[in-house]
Design a protein around this nucleic acid. Structure first.
Lengths: 210, 210
DNA sequence: GACTGTGAAGCCATTCACAGCT
DNA sequence: AGCTGTGAATGGCTTCACAGTC
């Protein structure tokens, strides 16, 4: 069992396999082969086996993988065998969108605090949670033992929020603001850009016509 | 000027550069170097130059790139020099989230129709647009000359909607349902999974502790 | 002197192909 | 016979390093 240097792409796919396995389990399917997983998620079978091989030997030769077990393993590897509390900063359109989204809960995440420094937004209910002022952040983080923060503020305010999150002890940040954040490298950072994927679509559409 | 085999990763970065250039332009900055772009978006300078080189020679040696021009070029390459009308299917939580999100508009996209086959949702207002029944899809597509559809329905309904979109002549699909869709390969498809990025965070957090 | 554009080198991820198990 | 696990081969993206231009 190797441990070092797992490609980021492998983690991404692992997350997809994990969700696919859940669907199989719900259908009562007991065993699955790498070919079936591959077809289900749209990658090659060798890729599936390679990805899993980074973490151990989960299958049985001649048989395949036990769906329930493999699902548990993938969740464990991804670190979602236990629930994660999140805080979200930015109660604008995107922040509202994110906190209303149920998909996070299904994967073991729950937003325990929403913050904004706009007085007009503080106190408003957003998906059953009251929007709090930024100064309450340390309190909520301590109460729920939060490690992960989501940034959904405008670009110009993002760095300031990131600094605040780091100062308050968060260890990972998911950033939806379209800007490169400057943070210590012991903090895990991922950036999400909602319109990038749309732009890869238009790139390909424009190109097809040319 | 080469044309073939542009890596998908290059398109993704191009989209990021394009947004960064917009910010520079708004600040009134006239010229920018590959090093500055690289620092601004978090990649290497050689990467920036290579990416741009796929599409032409936009810079001046010894000087750098003209911000306004390069911004226009990138938008042109990405196909977003003209606005794109979109339709969205699925008026649940995620659909609402997406249609409320202003970031799409800023990049030249506008949702011109929201559909759902749930009678309880049809007729409701969602961000100034009335939710329509699926059978109105052909009409809206024709009226606005829509080419791109967004799928934001539950996993079990996604394939059916994809088929419908293809039948109605859409040429590109952005799929938020966690399932591998089966569509003709002349249709451009991209999948978005909202929780994958969160799971790469938890993977890294769990690993750090171990 | 500064910075772009690019062939070549280096590196990393994916795919192949088969040995090994059931 | 069927399917996993994996070393080796392949392919592709990224980084280097420098020639070319202003």
């Amino acid at each position: 069992m190797k441990t070092l240097k797992v490609p980021e792409a492998t983690i991404t796919r692992l997350s997809v396999y994990s969700r696919f396995l859940e669907q199989l389990e719900r259908k009562g399917i007991v065993t699955v082969s790498s070919v079936e997983i591959a077809e289900g998620v749209g990658v090659g079978p060798a890729q599936v086996r390679k990805d899993l091989a980074y973490f151990g030997e989960f299958g049985t030769r001649g048989v395949g993988y036990n769906v329930k077990d493999l699902m548990r393993y993938t969740r464990k590897i991804l670190g979602i065998d236990e629930p994660w509390p999140l805080i979200l900063v930015g109660a604008g359109n995107l922040g509202f969108a994110l906190s209303a989204y149920k998909g996070f809960n299904e994967r073991g995440f729950s937003i325990v605090g929403v913050f904004d420094n706009d007085q007009n937004k503080v106190g408003k209910k957003i998906n059953n949670l009251e929007v709090s002022p930024l100064k309450k952040m340390p309190e909520i983080i301590a109460e729920y033992n939060v490690k992960i923060g989501i940034i959904a503020v405008p670009q110009y305010a993002a760095q300031e929020i990131a600094d605040l999150m780091v100062k308050n002890g968060l260890q990972a940040i998911l950033n939806y603001a379209p800007v490169a954040l400057n943070i210590p490298d012991n903090i895990v950072l991922r950036n999400v850009d909602m319109s990038v994927k749309l732009e890869t679509l238009t790139f390909n559409l424009s190109r097809k016509e040319a």
